[in-house]
């Protein structure tokens, strides 16, 4: 039997963090999640990660002929948004190629994060 959902005032408040990835080498959607989790492990460990309630919501591909670009949305707890944001600059390498993550913005809903930060440029 499925657990009954909590009333809204008792649920964790969430924030949606839009990010972009620029990579030297070809990068897939499946690669983005382990990259983020690896950086989280290095920085905060399992104790820290358990506080974040982190989830990768969606990833879009924006490849150009010059560089590989992806954009995505990350969900985390409202209280931990700064801690999650702080791992974004620590991601520097993936499979011996250089990679950089930039935060595009933080929003309260997936819809507004997508509209404001993914479909518009930085």
């Amino acid at each position: 039997m499925k657990l009954k959902i909590l009333p809204p005032h008792m649920r964790n408040k969430k924030r949606y963090l839009a990010f972009e990835v620029i990579s030297e080498t070809l990068i897939n959607r499946e690669d983005v999640i382990p990259i983020i989790w690896g950086a989280l492990w290095d920085m905060y460990g399992s104790c820290g990660i358990s506080r974040f309630d982190l989830w990768v919501i969606k990833i879009w591909n924006y490849d150009t002929p010059e560089k590989h670009v992806m954009k995505g949305i990350l969900r985390c707890k409202r209280e931990e948004v700064h801690s999650v944001r702080s791992i974004i600059p620590t991601i520097t390498r993936f499979k011996s190629g250089r990679v950089v993550f930039h935060t595009l913005g933080i929003s309260g809903s997936i819809h507004s994060a997508t509209k404001k930060f993914i479909y518009n440029k930085l």
């Binding site: 801690s83 600059p89 250089r98 990679v99 950089v100 930039h102 930085l122």
Partner: peptide, 18 residues
């Protein structure tokens, strides 16, 4: 030294919390 080492100012501010 390259564009892969540049970050937005707000990301840097978030990093300084560490």
């Amino acid at each position: 030294h390259s564009i892969f080492e540049l970050h937005t100012p707000l990301d840097i501010i978030a990093l300084t919390y560490c």
